[in-house]
Amino acid sequence: QPDICKDYKETGFCGFGDSCKFLHD
């Protein structure tokens, strides 16, 4: 199970976008 993207979880934004290896839940 992939890890949750910390940036996306906390801020709702991730610089990696769809290529981020972490989950954007």
Rank of each mutant, 00 (worst) to 15 (best):
Y8C: 05
G17P: 04
T11K: 14
T11V: 10
K9D: 12
H24G: 02
C14Q: 04
C14H: 02
C5Q: 08
F22R: 10
D7H: 08
L23C: 09
K9F: 11
H24A: 00
K9N: 08
I4C: 13
Q1T: 13
G15V: 01
H24V: 00
K9S: 12
L23D: 09
Q1A: 09
H24C: 02
Y8E: 13
F13G: 13
Q1F: 13
L23A: 10
Y8S: 06
K9M: 14
D3C: 05
D7F: 03
I4H: 03
D25M: 13
F16S: 12
D25C: 00
D3V: 04
D25L: 04
G17S: 04
D25S: 03
C14P: 07
G15S: 11
E10C: 06
T11Y: 12
E10Q: 05
I4F: 08
Y8Q: 12
C5N: 02
Q1P: 09
D3G: 09
D25H: 02
Y8L: 05
F22D: 07
D25I: 01
F16A: 14
C14M: 11
K6Q: 12
H24W: 00
S19D: 14
S19R: 09
G15N: 14
I4A: 05
L23Q: 11
K9L: 03
D18R: 06
Y8N: 06
E10F: 02
L23F: 10
I4S: 07
T11I: 07
G17N: 06
D18V: 03
T11F: 12
G15F: 10
C20I: 00
K6C: 10
Q1H: 11
T11N: 12
P2D: 14
G12I: 06
F22I: 00
C5K: 04
G15Y: 05
C14N: 04
Y8T: 05
G15I: 10
C20P: 02
T11Q: 10
D7Y: 01
G17K: 05
I4Q: 00
E10W: 01
F16M: 15
F22S: 08
D18N: 12
D3T: 07
F16D: 15
D18P: 11
Q1W: 01
C20T: 02
S19A: 13
D18C: 02
F22A: 09
K21T: 06
T11G: 12
D7M: 15
C20V: 01
G15W: 00
Q1K: 04
I4P: 03
H24N: 06
H24Q: 03
G12Y: 04
D18W: 00
F13P: 03
G12S: 11
I4G: 02
D25Y: 03
L23K: 10
G15C: 07
K9H: 12
D18A: 08
K21D: 02
F16E: 14
I4L: 11
G17Q: 14
E10V: 02
D18K: 09
G12R: 06
Y8V: 05
S19V: 05
D18E: 12
T11W: 10
F16W: 10
D7Q: 14
H24S: 01
P2I: 15
Q1I: 15
C5R: 00
G12C: 02
K21I: 10
F22W: 11
K6H: 13
D18G: 07
H24K: 02
F13W: 00
K6F: 06
D18S: 08
C20H: 01
L23W: 07
C14A: 06
K6P: 13
C14E: 07
Q1Y: 13
D25G: 03
G12V: 01
S19C: 07
P2H: 15
P2F: 14
K21G: 05
